[in-house]
């Protein structure tokens, strides 16, 4: 039996890294609900400047405010990505003109390279649940805030055929930030894409 999966949220010094506190519990619930993967019931918060980062090959990072990594955070993150870690960044503003989007993209470019659009046929979209049209649209994209756009694709940095950084402007942080018990009110569970993300990270 392999060690249980631990959902890790990245804590960085600038910005509001803890803007979506319900996301970990919701994704953990979905992973346990739909798969037989061993998963730890509680997530962890990992400071990006800490060596503990390397214990968690999948990291979730979100926020509304500008992101500026410190020198130590940059160093740790660069090694983390070089060694095969996967960083999932979600723009909580769902705004391509927003401060988070612009600064986070700049930081990722500085750390590992530019983000490029990820094809909607990528195996990420069919490794467990099948999303024929690419990343599922969220109810927050057209809510009158942010850029009011439906973002057709996610962006990524891919190395050696594997996603190292996955970047979303779709605001999954808002979409998934609710108590898992309330899933019973949804006709289609909107956290299913989160399961794909975890399955992809654990297998590819």
């Amino acid at each position: 039996m392999s060690a249980p999966f631990v959902f890790a949220t990245a804590q960085y010094e600038s910005g509001d890294w803890d803007s979506a506190p319900m996301v970990p519990a919701n994704i953990i619930d979905s992973v346990a609900r739909y798969t037989q993967l061993p998963v730890r019931p509680q997530g962890v918060i990992v400071p990006l400047s800490s060596d503990a980062t390397w214990q968690y090959p999948l990291l979730y990072l979100t926020g509304h405010l500008p992101v500026r990594f410190t020198a130590r955070e940059t160093e740790v993150l660069r090694k983390y990505l070089d060694r095969g870690g996967l960083l999932f960044i979600d723009d909580h503003n769902h705004d391509v003109d927003g401060a988070f989007n612009k600064t986070a993209r700049e930081e990722i470019r500085r750390v590992i390279g530019p983000l490029v659009p990820l094809p909607n046929t990528h195996e990420l979209y069919r490794c467990f649940f099948v999303f024929d049209n690419g990343p599922p649209t969220t109810s927050h994209e057209m809510n009158g805030w942010g850029d009011n756009l439906v973002h057709e694709q996610l962006d990524a940095v891919v190395k050696d055929g594997r996603i190292r950084v996955l970047f979303s402007n779709k605001d999954y942080s808002s979409e998934w930030s609710f108590h898992p018990d309330n899933k019973r009110f949804l006709s289609v569970d909107n956290t299913r894409f989160g399961v794909n993300l975890v399955v992809y990270a654990l297998t590819r």
Binding site: S2, A3, L37, P57, D160, L202, T203
Partner: peptide, 17 residues
């Protein structure tokens, strides 16, 4: 032959590399 997990993922990655 492995269960989904970090060991399987990174062993496959190392061999492919």
């Amino acid at each position: 032959l492995a269960q989904p997990g970090w060991e399987g993922k990174f062993v496959v990655a190392a061999l492919e590399e």
